[in-house]
């Protein structure tokens, strides 16, 4: 009993310090009143922060846009990661190590450096436009950067490994004789995939989707550096409220709203897991 407590203590300590305490602070700020000072709030029990969220559709739009962009990113990541993970898991063990290393390789360069590379590729005088014009395919540069497409491409690139890894683990665990049993019982490869492989790996696919969706929903850097200026995602709005408007109660309320919205799919996923 004592040993168990000792083992669990670091985990509980971590949760208390880095999850529970910040959440409590955030809640306190969300209920505080805005005040021009340092810090820019006065502790209170006021609903002004939350009220502001509902008064203006601006905040709701920012939340919904962020969820839509995150869902698109997660769906695209899933679409790319699923065959990738299947291919890596089915490769010979030595090749598998190389393929996994290639997958993780971009992570060894800085995140901002990778975004910078994308900007270099996509901007008006960038590599892609340069090549298109040199080949005589276009006369004027195409607008590639600062579009929703650029933003989503950047996010898919950044989050792809989060989707590949859980799927890779699932394909590694998948008993290859399941597919053979399906074939043996008369299923052609496409049918065997749809009736056996896909449903058996579905929980891992859901996990992969969530592992991308959740961080992508709060993403700030990529929309800021690559996205269209008019796109107001919740991450950007949070930044503005905290650092430009210095309206901490509204910002904290918005952050809490995002947190609650993200708990819904997590909870759904857990119930799905428990059922299978």
């Amino acid at each position: 009993m004592r040993g168990r407590l000792l083992l669990l203590a670091p985990a509980w300590g971590w949760l208390l310090l880095f999850v529970a305490a910040p959440a409590a602070i955030l809640a306190a700020i969300a209920l505080a009143e805005s005040d021009p000072g340092v810090p820019p709030f006065r502790l209170a029990l006021s609903a002004t922060g939350f009220a502001t969220l509902t008064e203006d559709t601006y905040y709701l739009d920012a939340l919904l846009t962020a969820l839509r962009v995150a869902a698109t990113t997660a769906a695209l990541c899933l679409l790319i990661a699923y065959p990738m993970a299947m291919g890596i898991a089915r490769a010979a063990p030595r090749r598998r190590v190389i393929l996994l290393a290639l997958l993780m390789l971009p992570f060894w360069t800085g995140f901002l450096l990778r975004v910078g590379a994308w900007i270099g590729l996509l901007r008006d005088e960038g590599w892609i436009n340069g090549m298109l014009q040199a080949a005589g395919l276009t006369d004027a540069p195409l607008t590639l950067l600062y579009t929703e497409g650029a933003m989503i491409a950047g996010m898919v690139h950044a989050y792809l490994p989060f989707a590949v890894l859980p799927l890779f683990a699932a394909f590694l665990r998948l008993d290859p004789s399941l597919g053979e049993a399906a074939a043996d019982l008369g299923a052609r490869p496409a049918i065997a995939f749809l009736t056996v492989t896909l449903p058996v790996t579905a929980p891992a696919a859901a996990a992969a989707f969530l592992l991308v969706f959740i961080p992508a929903a709060g993403e700030y850097v990529i929309p800021e550096l690559m996205g269209p200026p008019e796109a107001q995602l919740v991450g950007r709005v949070l930044w503005q409220e905290f650092f430009q408007n210095r309206d901490w109660p509204v910002a904290a309320a918005l952050a809490l709203a995002l947190l609650v919205l993200l708990l819904v799919p997590i909870r759904l996923f857990q119930r799905l897991e428990a059922r299978t």
Partner: peptide
């Protein structure tokens, strides 16, 4: 002939029951 077209069936060592 591919396995799905053979009138032969197999019981696998791991049984290979579909878990879902």
């Amino acid at each position: 002939t591919p396995p799905w077209a053979r009138p032969v069936n197999m019981m696998f060592q791991s049984y290979a029951l579909f878990p879902h």
